[in-house]
């Protein structure tokens, strides 16, 4: 604050006092949309520290790399089909997809509960169910984007290589529909685990156990049942036990180019769909109950 002698001060800071806000206030749908968009951005570390962008984008790059190589090979050598189907590509990169969910779910589900800022959200117009639903939707859409980007890269490569457009379109459509279901399931499981175990480390380990280890166990049991136990139905029934085997089983039944230990017959499709939907619904109910309980404390 230097006062120059002789020169009259030209700039004066006026204290306007407290000003009321009389502009437009958005309704609940707009607030929910803001929460959803913020959630998707945060899942990729956008709008957060530089460090938090490393993990999601590293995983995304790793899941894109094989697709880029496949596209290069197909375009240069002129193969008449993709060496891997769209749905199977997602299956082959399942470790990365599961890791993304396990690593980013705590960002959306643990932080508000651990630091108790959830109370500040619930003291605002959004109710606990809407809040939980929007958080889940943020993670599910982030995961869908994660699986969609390599799929679209493959699709673009297939079109560049001059493969049959309608064949590819059918195939990619099936893969995307399966990815939507997969994202809904995995986001529910990882979200529920993160909302219960508030320490990031435990949440990540819990999600890894539920998504990666369980899927490995299910695959082993499916193979043993089919090849050793000669039980085709036992093998297919075991596939109901993890989100990835549900995804692969449905892809197999739908002829989307994924091999399962035993072929999933049409009779099993309703069971697979119902279990998948129940899984999503169960996770959502669990999330709502969890947020409501913590919010009232």
């Amino acid at each position: 604050m230097s006062e120059l002698s002789g020169t009259p001060r030209s700039g004066v800071i006026h204290d306007l006092g407290y000003r009321h806000f009389d502009g437009v206030r958005e309704g609940t749908p707009a607030i929910a949309r803001t929460l959803f968009v913020t959630g998707v951005r945060h899942a990729y570390g956008l709008g957060r520290s530089g460090k938090s962008k490393v993990m999601p984008f590293l995983l995304l790059a790793m899941s894109l790399l094989p697709a880029a190589i496949v596209v290069g090979v197909v375009v240069l050598t002129g193969l008449d089909s993709l060496p891997v189907s769209y749905a199977d590509y997602t299956n082959q990169t399942q470790l990365l997809v599961s890791l993304f969910a396990a690593a980013q779910a705590p960002v959306l589900f643990s932080r508000d509960l651990r630091h108790r800022s959830i109370v500040l959200y619930l003291a605002r117009p959004l109710s606990a169910p809407v809040f939980a639903l929007m958080r889940w939707l943020s993670l599910a859409v982030s995961m869908l984007v994660f699986t969609l980007v390599p799929t679209l890269l493959l699709f673009a490569g297939a079109l560049l290589a001059g493969l049959d457009k309608s064949d590819q379109l059918t195939s990619v459509g099936k893969a995307i529909a399966l990815q939507v279901l997969l994202a809904a399931m995995v986001a529910g499981i990882a979200g529920l685990i993160s909302s219960v175990s508030l320490r990031r480390g435990f949440a990540v380990v819990g999600s890894v156990m539920a998504l990666i280890v369980l899927t490995g166990v299910v695959t082993v049991v499916q193979n043993i049942a089919y090849y050793e136990g000669d039980s085709e139905s036992g093998s297919v029934a075991t596939g109901l036990a993890s989100p990835w085997s549900l995804h692969n089983g449905l892809a197999n039944a739908w002829d989307a180019g994924v091999d399962t230990p035993a072929a999933v017959g049409a009779a099993w499709v309703p069971a697979y769909v119902i279990v998948a939907l129940l899984l999503v619904a169960g996770c959502l109910l669990g999330l709502v109950a969890r947020f409501r309980k913590v919010g009232s404390r």
């Binding site: 932080r111 630091h115 108790r116 800022s117 109370v119 003291a123 605002r124 117009p125």
Partner: peptide
Amino acid sequence: RRLVGYMPEHDCLP
């Protein structure tokens, strides 16, 4: 909840 503000007693800041 649209018209009120709430400052809780406990820590609630990320």
